[in-house]
């Protein structure tokens, strides 16, 4: 049961894979680079390379070192945990295939989040943002109240696109405005869009809008449009920012009338 799917194999496969990893022993320690080399096999992704290094952590110079650590879980690019910066681009390491990368391959932790160790970062801030924008539907209760509201398939498709956000942080890493505190960022704004589009979610729309209207709110977007380019789920983040910007302006102008 261990045969590999044969892909369109390269013409001249390299003999080995060289990987440079930017490491850090603990949060307050300095960063440093280490280089590892492993035999080439077809169909390698970054995770399988890291597993290989973990098994026998010896650098290219033959020095035995501590094994690099990283986060991984689903390996199907739906959990978002294995995100890192690979050859300068932020993405998930499970779907980064060696055959499609230039060597030496550089791996770095994301730079916009606290670096725990090696390639591990702490993205809990993103989950805090979800709390702030009330990223949920206020259901009355979990008991049986029958089906939800009828919906147009086109609206569902639009919401589906936003609801695929796996909180990986690529958009924040690529955003020139985001540095952890001054801007809530595209991820949370897209979630506001997701819930404000829903017929029940609309009813508590204002609470979510207020979550993105503060000093670090939606107006900090500099329209660099990097977020939408790096999003692994192809979420229309800039569209969400546009729509919610409109909503917040209207809410800012006329919201007081409702009170």
């Amino acid at each position: 049961m261990s045969t590999q799917v044969q892909t369109s194999s390269q013409q001249n496969p390299p003999k080995s894979v060289v990987i440079r990893i930017r490491r850090r022993d603990k949060p307050d320690a300095p960063q440093y680079w280490q280089e590892f080399e492993l035999p080439y096999r077809p169909n390698l992704n970054i995770i399988s390379c890291l597993m290989e290094i973990q098994k026998n952590p010896v650098t290219r110079e033959g020095k035995r070192v501590t094994p690099p650590v990283w986060n991984m879980n689903c390996l199907e690019q739906v959990c978002g945990i294995c995100t890192m910066v690979i050859n300068g681009r932020v993405r998930q390491s499970c779907s980064a295939l060696v055959d499609q990368l230039d060597q030496p391959i550089t791996l770095e932790p994301m730079s916009k989040f606290p670096n725990v160790r090696d390639l591990i970062v702490d993205r809990s801030q993103m989950f805090e943002h979800l709390k702030r924008v009330h990223a949920w539907i206020e259901i009355d209760g979990t008991y049986d109240l029958g089906p939800g509201p009828k919906m147009d398939q086109d609206d569902v498709m639009e919401r589906y696109a936003y609801s695929r956000c796996m909180t990986c942080g690529c958009c924040l890493e690529a955003c020139p405005q985001y540095d952890g505190e001054n801007y809530i960022g595209p991820q949370a704004i897209a979630q506001v869009r997701l819930f404000n589009m829903h017929p029940s979610g609309k009813m508590t729309r204002d609470e979510r809008l207020e979550g993105i209207m503060g000093e670090d709110g939606i107006t900090n977007c500099g329209n660099a449009q990097n977020c939408v380019k790096v999003c692994p789920m192809s979420i229309p983040l800039t569209k969400a920012i546009y729509e919610e910007n409109r909503e917040t302006v209207i809410h800012g102008l006329f919201g007081w009338l409702k009170r």
Partner: peptide, 22 residues
Amino acid sequence: PSIIYLFDRMGVPFSRTKEGLL
């Protein structure tokens, strides 16, 4: 069925029919 309806109410973007039903 009531589990599916609950998730529907919680905003899961379930695919729809032309009538807008699940």
